[in-house]
Every structure is written in structure tokens, then in C-alpha cells.
Design a protein around this nucleic acid. Structure first.
Lengths: 337, 337
DNA sequence: AATACAAGTGCAAACGATTGAACAGCACCA
DNA sequence: TGGTGCTGTTCAATCGTTTGCACTTGTATT
């Protein structure tokens, strides 16, 4: 049987309260007693029961990370994995634990989180769902449950968030290709429902504006967020005619990689005929032919910051909403030339 | 304030015990009462407090997934990510939660897990550490704490594990290249400390044996587990001379991809001069030039099985050790020819 | 000498559930 | 009339902590 606080108390000839106070470094405990109790705890390999502890103290040492409802897809996007690493590293430094909550459950994403918070297991949450589910968020706000979202929300309310400056990033890559003389730059993968893609596309427009240019309407290709491949017909349509793009800014690396493959099949060379850039700096981009120019968005940094913010929110429940932009970095490789 | 079991009891005009029994579908509760209580629970959005629940019932709904001590490296290997997905999907189907335990903490991997189990938070663990830390495992066994390890241990003791049949896999890929006429097959990335690589290498030898061949001693390249790249000098040494390999079996895709790049720099063509195969079916292998022939080890399946086994171990503490081999599949792409 | 104050501990009531044992009511049987 | 056996419910103890309050001492203050 595992040792409890009572066992320690008995062995040390003090009351459980005293042991408890030793545990929490209460100032009114004499150095002598503290030392003796600590020795016994070590000797008996005592570990306080977190359940009992949290039950009465209302302090939670576990935080939840909520992945988008379609766990199948989300967990297969390495981006989330990197974020997770950032969170996890931060958390373990502060003696917090990370609980994974995938929405792939019988229950809906939101319901699951509400269960998690009401059941007292977790003390805060980080939402990795780029498309902020209003119902859930509202419920969290009402219950004053500490949480941070990744990706900044549409209306800026009282919520904590971290994100990249996707407009600036979109602008930077577009300027990069414009600076290399490309004049018919396409944007691939806009999905207005998702802030990430919308912002990157806005940056794309901004860059044109600054350069006194205006991109062709047909050169902005919308596609659903989850899909990674432009259909062959659309691709052929886009890249035929004399006004065909000589560059493509893709909202993510996966789209870019698929496109490079398909362009080759169409007899177009990268980067000679078409320059291609992506976002997220996937590992795969390093090994493609040519290697993919992309944007490192520092997903791990996003995760770390998200955790820091959450920690703040948990410790100071009435603090104002904090937000943080994580710097990105253009990674030049062969696909632009 | 959140509703407690007492609130429900009061509102329903019954005792807390009755509410508790409704919650657990106790047979002795009348249908009528059960219905009434349930209605009230719904109305008041009642969620039982898991902390209190676990404290008394000793049932834990959280399991820990322990990543190798160097979380930095481990969490950056997509393999673990896939495993994690498998575990997570399985767990959420059974209403379990997954807690991530990276060893990157101030504390050592083992210490952290022991804290986790003693503190009562988690009811079982899945160890993703391929190199089984004996001290930890021993401690777990002694405490009769349910756990499953990924990758099968050296001495087969009473522990539960899941793994691929890496010997068979190593044999299969080697036979694949031998069947295509390659006769000087190298094996890249043996690290005797790691069972995975040792087994794959054993399979490589087995294939040769079956074909009545014996590989050149110098064609087996040892390298530390964590490294992904053969140093330029060693590579040049290996691929010079008339006996240079015409094929390379690499213990994982990352090594294979790096090697393909370096071979190109050496003026050797893949697959014409050298056939290359890897393991794990990384996403990156799909986009390389040429696309990489590899082995799908079904990491997600490994995760799912690990969870199933753990569930069994938690429910039947005295059941014998269960083990499971997950099938692999050869993925033929362009790098063998 | 009486009082005040601080330091160091212990008591006992929470926290929010579960669960074995006891009990009340009712039907049935002889 | 009383015993027996169900059924449905409540009682009260328990899980392992934390924490406000009360209680002893010992020392300083008046």
C-alpha cells in the first residue's frame, strides 16, 4: 500500500496538518520539524496524492490541449505536432501536465472540453482549433475558465491568443517572388472560413498593392481548408493561356509539394517556369526536388508562448486578455530561383 | 458555482447515494427515480467531479504516454506522432484521456513516471521509449502498475508489448532489392543498443542467408541512433572502389533521404547506380526525387494496439503478459527501380 | 505579576464523490 | 400472525489532502 500523509505523520510523530504544511513550505513550521518530516518522506518514498490535493485546494496541475474535431486530419498535420512539443516542453518545466483532447470522440469537441473542465481534471486549455467554435468559446468565457487559442479570433474579444502575423508573412513571401521579377503571382488555397489562409491572402494582396500592382482575379484559387491538392482540371486551367502564372504562393507546404509534382507532369519546370513557395516549413520540403522555399512559422514557439499565456491566465484570473505574435522567417531554397 | 451531487440530490428529493447509483446504472434503482434524477442532471448541467470520483473508487480515467527522455528529439520524429494519434483515437473511444509525459523535465524520465503513478493521476502507461529503462520498468512491475511498452524488450519477462516484426521487415526489403538483381546491398544505421535497428539488420542478414549470399562486412554501417546523416567521409569511403554497394537499406527514411541527397552530390544516381530503401514511410519520402521506397510500419496501428493492451491490463490486473505484432507493408516507389 | 504577542502545532471540517450495510415497505405464504 | 424475500432507498464511513481556527508554550512588554 502506498504511503499516505497520515503514515508520514505517524512516523514523524506529528499531525497530518504539519506534514501538509511542510509540503507547502509553510513559514510557521520550525526548520527542525521540517527537516525531520522531509527525511521520513524521502525514506518512505512518499508522493502526495494529486487527486485529493486538487480536490480540496482547487489547484489543477493538468492543462488540456484541444485538437480540431477531425483528429484524423489534424493529428496528421505535423504543424500541430510541433505546437504540441512547444506546449509540452513549457509545461513540463513548470511541473504541469498536458492532457490531449482529440475531438475524434463520440462526443463533439466542445462537449468534451466542457466535460473536462467541469469534471475538475484540467485547470486550463489551449485550443488548437483555428476556426474558433463560438459556442465552446462562449461557454468557456462564461465559466471564467482559463484558455488560450491558437490563431487570432475574428472579433477581438477578451480572449487570450497567440499567432503568427500571417498578413506580414503573406506579404513577405509575395514580395520575395516579386523582387525576383515574377509578375503573375498566383495565390493557392484561400478558404475564407479560416483566418490563416485569409490573412496570408491579404498579405499577398498587400504586397501587390505596395508594388503598385494588382493581381489577376483568376489567379487567386480558393480551395477547402482540408484539401491538399488542386484538381488536375483546375490546375491545367490555371496554367494555360499566355497569362499563366509564373509564380505560386501556396497557403501551406503540402499544397506546394503536391503542386510541384503536378506541374512537372504538365511539363512546367520549377523554378524556371513557375516559382513556388509554401508555408510552415515541413520536413518534406527539404527533400523535394527542388527543395521548397517556405516560411518557418515556429510552431514550437507558438506552443511555448501559448503555454506561458495560459499560465498567466491561470494565475491571474482577472488579468486582461494577453496576445502574442510569434516571428516568422523566410527560408530560401531552390523553388523560387 | 458548479452543481455537485448534493445539489442534484436535493433538487430531486433523494439522497446523494441514489444519485450516485443512477450515475452508475445500479440495478436496484427504480426506472422512475432514475429518469427523474437524470432529467435534473441534464437540466442543471451536472458533471460528476472526476477527482472525487477517482479518489474513492480508485478508478483512473487517464493514461500516461511516456516519450523518450530527450523530448526534443523524440517529439520531432513523426513516428511518435503517429503512434500518439493511434493511442489517442483508441483512448477517446473508450472515454479515457491521454496525458503526455515528456522526459524533458527537470526530473528524469523514470522519476516523472513514478510521480505520475504514485500521485494517483494516471491508471496506466504506454512507454514509447524503445530502449527500455530497466530501473523504471522494474519499479512499475513491482508496484503492479499496468503498462505497455512499444518495441519488444530484450529478455521476455512478464511485460506487455506491441511491436512490428522488424526482422521480417528487414528481410522483406532486402529480398525486394535482391530480387531486382542488386548484389552488393549495404545496411545503413545499425545501433546495437536499439532493438529496432538490430532487428532490421538481422533481417537483412537473414535475407542474404536465404539467398545463399553473404554481405560484405564493410557494407554494414553503424551509426548512433539519433543521427540521421552519414558523414561525407564515411559515405565517400563506402561508395568508392569497385565493390561499392549498388543498394542501401537504411534503418529509417530520414537517413535514406539524407543519403539520396548526398549520393547525388557524389554523382551517383538513384536508383540506377544505387537503390535506396528506408523504413517508416515518412511523408517526406513521397515528395523526394525519386520518391522513396519504404516500409509502412503502421505507427498508428501500433498506438491503437498499445492502448487496447493497456486497457486489458488495467481491467484484468492478473492477466498474463499480452503481446502483439503489427503487420508492415512494403511501399514500392521510385528509389529501387 | 499580569498581559500581549508570536511561533509552532493540532483539531476538525471541508472537498465531492462511492459503497457496504442497514432499513422500510410490500407481497406472499403457511 | 409472523416469517421470508424482494425492492428501493438512505446512512455513514471513507478516499487523502488542505486550511481556518484554537490551543499551547515561551518571551517580551508594561
Amino acid at each position: 500500500m502506498k504511503a499516505t500523509i497520515k503514515d508520514i505523520a505517524q512516523a514523524a510523530g506529528v499531525s497530518p496538518s504539519t506534514v501538509s504544511r511542510v509540503l507547502s513550505n509553510h513559514p510557521r513550521i520550525s526548520a527542525e520539524t521540517a527537516q525531520r518530516v522531509r527525511a521520513i518522506m524521502r525514506e518512505m518514498r512518499y508522493q502526495p496524492n494529486q487527486l485529493a490535493r486538487s480536490l480540496v485546494s482547487r489547484k489543477r496541475t493538468i492543462i488540456a490541449v484541444v485538437l480540431p474535431s477531425t483528429a484524423e486530419t489534424s493529428l496528421s498535420d505535423p504543424f500541430f505536432y510541433d505546437v504540441l512539443r512547444g506546449i509540452s516542453v513549457g509545461a513540463s518545466q513548470e511541473e504541469y501536465h498536458v492532457l490531449l483532447s482529440t475531438g475524434a470522440a463520440p462526443k463533439a469537441e466542445g462537449a468534451k472540453l466542457e466535460e473536462l473542465m467541469h469534471s475538475g481534471i484540467v485547470g486550463g486549455a489551449i485550443l488548437l482549433t483555428s476556426k474558433v467554435q463560438d459556442a465552446t468559446v462562449q461557454a468557456l468565457l462564461e465559466d471564467r475558465f482559463p484558455f488560450v487559442v491558437l490563431g487570432h479570433p475574428d472579433q477581438d474579444t477578451q480572449i487570450h491568443w497567440v499567432d503568427n502575423d500571417n498578413i506580414a508573412a503573406g506579404c513577405a513571401v509575395t514580395e520575395h517572388v516579386l523582387a525576383r521579377g515574377r509578375r503573375r503571382v498566383a495565390f493557392i488555397g484561400l478558404d475564407a472560413h479560416y483566418r490563416v489562409t485569409a490573412d496570408r491572402c491579404a498579405g499577398y494582396h498587400l504586397a501587390h498593392e505596395r508594388a503598385g500592382l494588382s493581381p489577376a482575379r483568376a489567379h487567386v484559387l480558393e480551395m477547402p481548408y482540408a484539401s491538399t491538392r488542386v484538381s488536375p482540371e483546375r490546375l491545367r486551367a490555371l496554367f494555360s493561356g499566355k497569362d499563366r502564372p509564373d509564380a505560386a504562393v501556396c497557403t501551406n507546404d503540402l499544397i506546394a509539394l503536391e503542386m510541384m509534382r503536378d506541374l512537372a507532369a504538365l511539363g512546367l519546370r520549377v523554378p524556371e517556369d513557375v516559382a513556388v513557395v509554401g508555408f510552415n516549413n515541413l520536413q518534406a520540403g527539404r527533400y523535394s526536388a527542388p527543395p521548397l522555399t517556405t516560411v518557418e512559422i515556429d510552431a514550437e514557439g507558438l506552443g511555448r508562448s501559448a503555454f506561458r499565456l495560459l499560465l498567466g491566465a491561470m494565475e491571474h484570473p482577472k488579468g486582461g486578455a494577453a496576445r502574442q505574435l510569434i516571428p516568422f522567417q523566410l527560408i530560401e531554397r531552390g523553388s523560387v530561383g
